[in-house]
Design a protein around this nucleic acid. Sequence first.
DNA 1: TTAGAAATTTACGTTTACGTAAACGTAAAT
DNA 2: ATTTACGTTTACGTAAACGTAAATTTCTAA
Lengths: 144, 144
Amino acid sequence: MADHSEFNIGELAREFGVTTRTIRHYEEIGLLQPMRRGQARIYSPADRTRLKLILRGKRLGFSLDESRAIVDLYDPARGNKEQLQALLARIQQQRDKLNAQLTDIKQMLSSLDDAEESCRKALKKARKQEKKQTKTQANKKGKT
Amino acid sequence: MADHSEFNIGELAREFGVTTRTIRHYEEIGLLQPMRRGQARIYSPADRTRLKLILRGKRLGFSLDESRAIVDLYDPARGNKEQLQALLARIQQQRDKLNAQLTDIKQMLSSLDDAEESCRKALKKARKQEKKQTKTQANKKGKT
DNA sequence: TTAGAAATTTACGTTTACGTAAACGTAAAT
DNA sequence: ATTTACGTTTACGTAAACGTAAATTTCTAA
């Protein structure tokens, strides 16, 4: 059951937090090609890794077609010299894209710092206002 | 025209590499609310910034609804203490998500390094094979 | 002032990435 | 033997994010 030499669809779905429908969908479009035992799909550790890569791509906003291309970078149909050169180029393109995302993320994180700061300032003001209110109310009570 | 105090839809579309349809779509779902001069849409620098933030979110794979939430982080309806606290929490959540993406990207970049290395090795082999071929052909020519 | 470029609205179409329902097979436990 | 908990195929549905076409108006430069 848990020997980790093979997996069934439910195990993978649970592990990665997706539905079985999702995994079957990836098979429909040729992203996964598990073995069969009778009707049932049997996933190898390599299949599991492919799925993991696809889902990582998803988290970064890649389409399934882009993810397919990415997976192919790691597990290419090793061909002739021209194909290897082309592969190198695609690897570099992918790197460029990821580095662009890095830039975007860093900018966003820095903006978040600003947002947090101005938020904290607003909170301090709000607290001050609150104290004033409390004092006023205390006075009122005193007068009562 | 280019005084940068206002923009029309075509200028923004060109600047950010999207179609006017896209920008109008963002208006349809309430992400942008440009002024009107007659029928024509007039975008302020603030509108332009919003658009820039939305598109940055898109590049990172966020849905338009997520992008809306992100933009609201920077430009919130400054409310009471509870709302400010909630805002702080959302800011932190967003930070967490971005940091998770950072991890994914770093892992991908490292995998790309591996892929490139194995690709370069394969290339060297291919070149060696080529040299052998060349020599053989040279021999053949010599024999001819 | 008139052609042409760029703007507008309306509305239906398309792609991606699954969701969902129906109808059924399989295997283990009771 | 039947319930339970998976699995399967088939096929239509759907939400998001625009694309695209048509018909119209509005600027702008010659």
